[in-house]
Design a protein around this nucleic acid. Structure first.
Length: 310
DNA sequence: AAGACGAAAGTGGTTGA
DNA sequence: TCAACAACTTTCGTCTT
């Protein structure tokens, strides 16, 4: 079942170009000529069927029903009998126990439901603030539900767990947002989000590949109003950087920012380190360090020099 | 004056004994 | 559990355009 809820955009309102590029996985639509991000809330058409444990060591795998995870109850709640079952029981002791169990079960499940209701509302709020695709939102909801069911929320605020779940979902879907952005959207400190993110993913056995710097390029480039040529140049730079192991161990946003900075220099659409640093959420110093490594190891110095002289 | 550069000290997280 | 360590940040002074 495939359907688009939004009518598709035919041409760019900015430059009138018909050269529109859709990336359904990332929920991004960009204009190839001016780089404008046109519509980034498309429906993701692919179903997420993977389960959580890629390591296979622990049997934590469980797949959600193909219902919407953002509904607070999928009709899967438990119930301990009803009063009609009561009369089938013999002794007073059994009846006592029956009532106690029933009472507690209702109490617990309603508590969880209430919690989920509030949490999912918050999740939707943040998700729409960050313009995340529906698939990510659902993934985050699934993660949050698991977290609650395992009782891992104890000692943590609901909001931070929601933010952590969203962050994890973003990473899994390779639509990374920075911790800063997540912090701004949720009002939670980024180190708190990072903490819960690590905790939740570890406890749930969710394995997440280290994020690819290239995933950040379209968004950063668009924020800096850089042309698509620069984007692809930056991606090329990132690829060759990865080939010589320059990317491992470093913060992906820093590398992405530096690549973009270098690309902007070479193409004569210069942006200051400050500007690039701001949108990427790193400091100028980090950009400088990455930038130095890049031009040195990739022998781009002459390219940069050349375009400087122009 | 603004941007680029680099040194030095501090922070938070990872790793390995 | 603790200390060493790498990456990143903050701050600040200097150089370049």
């Amino acid at each position: 079942m495939v359907q688009l809820i939004r009518k598709s955009i035919k041409e760019c309102p900015e430059c009138g170009s018909k050269n529109i590029y859709r990336n359904t996985e990332k929920g991004e639509t960009t204009c190839r000529d001016c780089g404008l991000v046109l519509e980034d809330r498309m429906v993701d058409l692919s179903q997420e069927w993977r389960d959580f444990s890629d390591d296979g060591s622990e049997s934590k795998r469980r797949t959600g029903a193909p219902t919407s995870e953002t509904q607070f109850d999928q009709g899967l709640g438990t119930e301990v009998g009803t009063t009609s079952d009561f009369y089938k029981l013999g002794s007073d002791r059994e009846r006592d126990k029956f009532f106690r169990l029933r009472k507690w079960n209702i109490r617990i499940s309603t508590a969880i439901e209430r919690n989920l209701k509030v949490a999912l509302a918050e999740l939707k709020r943040i998700s729409s603030f960050l313009k995340l695709p529906k698939s990510v939102e659902e993934e985050a909801a699934r993660i949050y539900r698991l977290t609650v069911q395992k009782g891992l929320v104890r000692g943590r605020s609901m909001e931070s767990v929601v933010a952590g779940a969203l962050y994890a979902a973003c990473r899994r879907h390779e639509v990374p947002r920075t911790l800063d952005e997540m912090g701004e959207a949720s009002g939670i400190e980024k180190k708190e989000i990072g903490r819960t993110y690590r905790f939740v993913t570890r406890e749930l056995g969710i394995s997440i590949r280290p994020s690819n710097p290239a995933d950040y390029i379209p968004r950063f480039a668009s924020a800096l109003k850089l042309s698509p040529e620069i984007q692809s140049k930056a991606v090329k730079i990132l690829e060759s950087a990865r080939d010589i192991e320059l990317t491992s161990g470093r913060g992906p946003t820093g590398i992405a920012a530096a690549a973009l900075y270098v690309a902007s220099l070479i193409h004569g659409e210069k942006r200051t380190q400050r500007e690039v640093a701001d949108v990427a959420g790193v400091t100028e110093v980090t950009i400088r360090n990455r930038y130095k490594e890049l031009i040195k190891k990739l022998k781009l110095t002459k390219d940069v020099e050349k375009s400087k002289r122009k």
